[in-house]
């Protein structure tokens, strides 16, 4: 299997604080990887590095064989221009904790915006595709609603449809259910399970242990800027080898 995401010794600092201290992680194509860990462990920061929302300070990070944010020429790395970074991000979908839907556009407008403006998909085709995606997340009849008229769970499902509209080869989820009322978590997780079943490569930062256990192919436990242990969910969640993992799992389970 080819690696979709490969991180080797990735470091990142915000001023004096080193948030990532050398992350090693490989996510194969078609795999679902869940990143777990206490807050401040660097899991969200790492996820944001994968599509260059944060610039890494050291190590190597590649998506589908291409370095993130840089172009290799001989033995030199050239930083990519904003426009080139934008082109690479087209293939990577991202879902945020706070949804970040465009409030001035309807659900349908949110989903068609990037295909029409970035990929220059003809409007009619983009609409048809968007309606198919909204139907898939169970919101076809809400297509004309503005985000403020939707519940949190519905907004997050629109956000997933919006990301899928770019036909990404990799989906990043940054705590997608953390801002939701408890009774709305299930509908979002169901959509994500469906995606996983269809073979989408997914990296999910989450606190949903049940989801990780059921859906993940790989679970990585992060603490203090490093991957403490990674492996199949049965092992990491069932028989953790490290004391830090055990301590964390005792608190959340």
């Amino acid at each position: 299997m080819t690696a979709m995401v490969r991180a080797e010794g990735v470091t990142k600092r915000f001023g004096p604080v080193e948030v990532l201290k050398g992350i090693d992680l490989t996510v194969a194509a078609g795999e679902v990887a869940c990143l777990l860990g206490p807050s401040g462990s660097g899991k969200s920061t790492f996820l944001r590095c994968v599509n260059h929302l944060e610039r890494i300070d050291g190590g190597q990070l590649s998506v589908d064989g291409e370095l993130v944010g840089y172009r290799r020429q001989g033995d030199k790395l050239h930083e990519l221009k904003a426009r080139e970074v934008a082109v690479r991000r087209r293939d990577i979908g991202m879902v945020f904790q706070r949804f970040n839907l465009f409030p001035h556009l309807t659900a349908l407008g949110n989903v068609t915006e990037a295909p029409v403006r970035v990929l220059r998909t003809p409007r009619e085709r983009a609409r048809a595709e968007a309606m198919r995606l909204l139907d898939r997340v169970g919101l076809a009849e809400r297509a004309d609603h503005y985000p403020s008229q939707l519940s949190g769970g519905q907004q997050q499902r629109v956000a997933i449809a919006r990301a899928l509209a770019m036909r990404p080869k990799l989906m990043l989820f940054d705590e997608p259910t953390s801002a939701l009322d408890p009774e709305l978590v299930g509908e979002v997780l169901d959509v994500m399970k469906g995606l996983a079943a269809d073979g989408m490569t997914m990296v999910v930062v989450t606190h949903e242990m049940g989801f990780a256990r059921e859906v993940a192919d790989q679970v990585a436990f992060l603490d203090d800027g490093v991957v403490v242990e990674a492996g199949p969910p049965d092992e990491v969640l069932g028989r953790p080898r490290h004391e830090r993992t055990r301590a964390f799992l005792d608190k959340v389970l």
Binding site: L53, A82, R83, R89, F96, F102, A114, R117, M166
Partner: peptide, 13 residues
């Protein structure tokens, strides 16, 4: 978050 969401969709500045 709006700028980030747009960036994540591949929209340029």
């Amino acid at each position: 978050g709006q700028t980030e969401a747009a960036a994540a969709l591949g929209m340029g500045p």
